[in-house]
Every structure is written in C-alpha cells, then in structure tokens.
Design a binder for these strands. Structure first.
Lengths: 198, 198
DNA sequence: AGCACTTGTCGAACTCTGTTCGGAAGGTCT
DNA sequence: AGACCTTCCGAACAGAGTTCGACAAGTGCT
C-alpha cells in the first residue's frame, strides 16, 4: 500500500497500526490466515491489548471492510473525474475491476465474509460506495433517470460476480483471471450490442 | 430436503448419513456453524470416526460442495427439458436462481469457501454444472456459436453476483432479497433491449 | 501532595475448534 | 486358531478467539 493511497491521516494509534498490520497479513494469507496473535506480534503488543481497541475480531474485520469500501468509493470517484474515458460509467467500472485485482483478499473480506453480513456500518459503507458508482450514470443519455438505479445495480452485481469467480480460481494459472474477466466483458458487450436481438 | 430431490441412492453408510447431517446443519447455521462434533452427535458417532470417512473437514466440505454442483446441474437440466419457458436459457437461469433461493448456505459454500478454491474435484463439478448451463444456448439463434461461451459465462457470472449480493443482505428484511433480484433482472433486461442504444 | 479514577498494557488461563493417537470390537481370509 | 483389515471411539493435543486479574501511567479533584 503506497503512502499516497493512505488517506488514513491522524495520530498513529495502536488501533491504526493494528489495522495496517492486519491489512498486510490479510493480503498475504487471506482471511483464514489472519490471526489476532499475528497482528499483536506485528505491532509488538499483547493479544489482550487489541481488545481495548476492538470489541472482538469481527469488529476489527468490520473496520477493515469499511476502510475497504471507502477506499473503493474514493477510487471510483477519482477515476470518474480523471476524464480518461469518454463515459463515466466506463471509468467507474474500470476502477472497480482494478480495485479487485489489486486487493483480492480485502475485497473477498468485504464481499463474502458472512460474519459481516449483519454489520450495519459495513453495509452502510458499501451502500455509500454503490451510491458513488451509481452517480456515474448521471448525464448518461442512454439510460433514463428512472432506470439508473436498476441498471447500475445490475452492473455492480456483475462486478461482484466477476470478483467471486476470480477469487474462486486457483492461483495456479496467473493469466486465467485476466482471461476470465476479458471473456465476461466481451460477452457483456455482445449482449448490449444490437447484434443480440431479443 | 425432500426425498424426491435425493438422488443419492446406495447403501446408507455413515459417510452418507454424515453428509446429510452436515447439509442440514449447514442450512441451519451456515458454514461457520458447521462443526465436526455437531455432525458426529447428529449421526451418533465419535468425532474420530468421521476421519475414517473423510480425510479432514475440508474433504467433507468438498464432498458437500460437489453434491451441490451436481444437484444444481440436474436442476438446470430438468428445467431446460420441462418446456415451461419458450427459451431454454430462461429456464436454466430460473433454475439457477431457484437453487440459490432454496439453498443459500450451501451455495455460499460452493461459491465462496476459499478452502475449496484449490480443490480440483470441486472445480470440475462446477465446470460440469456450467457446461450444462452453457448448453442451454444450443439452438438459440440470437447468439452465434462462437459467442456462446462468453455470453453464457457472462450470465453465469451475473448469477454468482446475484447470489453474493443476496447472501450479504441481512435476514432482517425477508422481501429484500426478492426485490434485489427483481431489480437486477429488470436492469439486465433494459440493457439487453434496443432501448439501450450503445 | 495525596487519592480516586480512567486508560492502556499484558501474561495467564479458559473455551471451543480441528486433529491425532492408541486401542478395542468384529469380520474375513489362510 | 491366527493374522489382518475395517470400523469405531475416548482421550489427549495444538491452535484459534476470548476473558480475567493485575500493573503502570496519566488526570483531575481536594
């Protein structure tokens, strides 16, 4: 994680360091490889100390997920403003896929950790990220305002599916993930084109 | 699980009973609530005994997932042959969504359990199920043969995304899942229609 | 200064998992 | 009868999250 991506300013508390360490361990070993004792060792504290900064392990994972959604939202926002794509939805979608490719384990946590499904704060952060994504359709004359929600939701959900499929692929073939994404995008493009006459 | 859905014939071995018990516990409490001791208690055996029928817990989960993919493949096949929909892809998609709605926890295991990502047998079962799904496009004149793979993959992945989104929703609002699915399908339909001019 | 209270810290212990070990019971060959 | 294999199990082990009780350092009040 380069410094310029860290918008987590403020004092470097133990909580902050623990979250950073957890993020590193998460990227290295996935959720299953993320243990409190390892985090504690990384920040040179006792395990019990972590419980003074997080209610329990789920709270720590939730904090991680929330920061993930916020980061994704910022990435989408920034991509939309960059003007590199003629259509903002294309920039937003690309930012989404880039985030997944760069933070697969973090995104897996954000998306599939059942223990976070009941966490209101996490879901609020996800809704906020989706709202940013949805805003990429503003001013797009191809979809009328009353359709924007369902259309953006469809693409958002397709993105979730792509992430899910990519994550489930083994790491044996490094190019497999890229080819899979390319196929899906190509297939989607065909379905959107007039060649597909319903 | 009604009896007519059980195509797991053969002798009622302990392995078979353990899998059935596991499936019940899975549906009740999710993967996180599935413990070997609970399974052992359910089939009235010792925990160690389970290790004579499964190499470890992952092997048991893998067996569960494989049966899930096989069951999904059968459901899709059956739906395509029923003729209730004019287009076979519609029947197949419907069967997919029905399976997810009826077996959310099992599908979550099949789709997102990282421990199964490296299991070849599970992934082969998934590929087989996808092959059945893909066959629903045979004879569909809207998509040329060379496009069938990527188009069916796109819809398959969209289904994964829907499942993922539904599973992440809390259980607080029972109708939320249905509304979400409806929105996505509606949005997808709009994108496919000529009204969406790219 | 003295005292109470809060905060941050930690080692040790507890519970609950998956897992392994050694042995017992029962069948099937030679 | 003896050797072997399969199936079974209680007990113990190791590794996770979690809780407990205590200690140190600061802060505010008298």
């Amino acid at each position: 994680m380069p410094d310029e991506l860290k918008l987590n300013a403020g004092p470097v508390t133990l909580r902050r360091r623990a979250l950073d360490a957890a993020r590193g361990l998460l990227a290295a070993g996935g959720v299953d490889g993320l243990h409190l004792r390892a985090i504690a060792a990384e920040v040179r504290s006792g395990v019990a100390t972590l419980y003074h900064h997080f209610a329990d392990k789920n709270a720590l994972l939730a904090a991680l997920a929330i920061e993930g959604w916020e980061e994704l939202a910022r990435a989408i926002e920034q991509a939309m403003g960059s003007g590199k794509f003629p259509r903002r939805i294309d920039a937003a979608s690309r930012a989404f896929l880039t985030f997944i490719r760069r933070n697969p384990q973090l995104y897996a946590l954000m998306q599939t950790e059942q223990a976070l499904a009941a966490n209101d704060a996490v879901r609020a952060a996800e809704r906020a990220a989706f709202a940013v994504f949805q805003s990429s359709f503003e001013g797009d004359d191809r979809v009328p305002p009353e359709r924007v929600e369902e259309v953006s939701l469809t693409i958002w959900v397709l993105g979730r599916g792509i992430a899910s499929a990519v994550l489930m692929q083994g790491d044996d073939d490094p190019g497999a993930a890229g080819r899979l994404v390319a196929k899906v995008i190509s297939g989607f493009g065909f379905l959107l084109s007039p060649r597909f006459a319903d």
